[in-house]
Amino acid sequence: MSILIDENTKVLVQGITGSFGARHAKLSLEYGTKIVGGVTPAKGGQFFENVVPIFDTVGEAVKETGATASAIFVPPAFAADAILEAADAGVELIVCITEGIPVMDMMRVKAMLKGSKSRLVGPNCPGLVTPGLGEKSHGGCRIGIAPGYIHKRGNVGVVSRSGTLTYEAVWQLTQLGYGQSTCVGIGGDPINGTNHQEVLEMFNNDPETEAIILIGEIGGNAEVEAARWAKDHCKKPIAGFIAGATAPPGRRMGHAGAIVGGDEDTAQAKKKILAECGIAVAETPSVMAKTLLERWGK
């Protein structure tokens, strides 16, 4: 088991003919992911890498391939439309990699997805990986831009807003000999489809996941809400890290969502609440895996 995706998940790539989308679609194929179709308007009928059929619309692609997940690589100005098109076509899991989508667009998308059966992960995220059992975790499902080879199949769930910090945690785990059930990058934007708490709930219900790493940063209170939920409901050991302890207030630190507003927004305040909720807080980003193993009793 794993969450959201496994090696049998059939995946579409919206924006498969763009340079970014093409590059990562190819890497996902090489990783063993079932990329069953691509979508680029006006390029229907062509093939990507001579094997993956390209469709004009998501609806057509879903009908022809039975895909249940889609990775979105379209430029920011068209990304909101791409998300809504995927939802309209009934795609169960929509993963939006695109960075730089206007907040107003995401606000409308969020409101329109309310009550929909589609789940959105992202935007501005590295995507998801459920590692496979092959060499360097080959044979798993990779949706997005994470490097596949750093993973290892195992029992730790990883959830994070940041891409490179996720890789850092995953690599630490793999080097210490511990694999991952699923790694979920929820994205660095102020409005995103899936939050920390929802992913924690899924990990808590997933029999394969035995322990969890939760990585957050300054800005908003999603990590705090997740920690408070975990205190009462999560039965599995959790280690956490919050980036941005040295960030000056009022400055946007790369991610649109990473900005210190009020006193509750600081890394120090969040770490304190995480600790109060029973999460083992890593003192530095280089000991995220080590902190988890200590809490986990390994």
Partner: peptide, 17 residues
């Protein structure tokens, strides 16, 4: 000089640490 916003913040933090 870092790649990725989260890692860049974390790098500042670890220097301070």
């Amino acid at each position: 000089l870092v790649n990725g916003a989260g890692l860049a913040m974390a790098t500042m933090d670890i220097i301070k640490h």
